[in-house]
Amino acid sequence: MAPVWSLQYTGAMTKNTTTIIELNGVTKKFGVYAAANNISFTVREGEVVGFVGENGAGKTTTINMLLGFTSPTKGTVKLFGSAMRPGSAHISHRSIGYASGDMSLPEDMTGEQYIQFAMAQTPGDHSARYRELATVFRPQIGKKIGDMSRGNKQKIALVAAFVTNPKLVILDEPTSGLDPVMQDVFLDTIRDMAAHGTTVFMSSHYLQEVAEVSTRVLLMKQGRIMEDLTAEQLERRGGKIVTLTTKHAVTLPKDDVVIPTSTRRNGYYETSFDFIGKPSVLTKWLSGVTGVIDVTITDRTLEHEFKSVYESEVGDE
């Protein structure tokens, strides 16, 4: 299995000097409930940031503040060095492309009319880019949006978000309605844009797709950023998933074990755990285990990292 955390492109990594997004102590409360709680992070030019977390973690609340749909209760949100405020958000939006998985589009318009409408709001000739995107996404531009399937609406939203060559792309569950072929097209487009210096901030439930394109991952839980890791850090952290079938119960290594499970089936013990320590420690431990029937060792993925953050802290909640 190929390492999940290897970078798919390197162009963006050489350009990350300018701060595009800056959140400083941002809290958003709805009544007494803090949907985002004292969040701080920065995103630099050319980064592709995956923004992951369970439902209700505060991802969309954060994205709403990034786009100026809502104001933070406390703290500051800056885009391109300027404070993001609802009344002046349109100035930043000239450099932002946005699409979400549940985006509402005017149902009475055709795909063509909506894309033209979106293009017209940003000065410049975007026709060449439109042709490019139309070729790869193949949106049903002549059909009324109201008559389209969810996936086709999603293609229209993505083309409209990308068509003006924005400096920053903010995406909220962007592939939730796309078929696997279109998901690949989407990921290729993100890679291509990133290679040309576009900054991407993308929330997604599809951890594999986040892992494939991201240079950095923010993991959010209960309104807080729990992990902020670059691809290198994730790769270094890496680790293995070990599944072991033995005749006898085994004693796990003392340290560096995450999410251990053990079941007894057909007279054998099936033990599984994530190991995030040094490989030599794991090898030494395995050599001491007796009665081994079967053993599989695979690389940990972002999904496992995600689960370890959520499941290891269940007791804290």
Binding site: F69, P86, G87, S104
Partner: peptide, 17 residues
């Protein structure tokens, strides 16, 4: 309620306009 206002505001259209 339909989310169309958000869609419009995600474009470079000012709230006043």
């Amino acid at each position: 309620e339909k989310g169309l206002l958000r869609t419009m505001l995600s474009l470079p259209v000012s709230r006043v306009s």
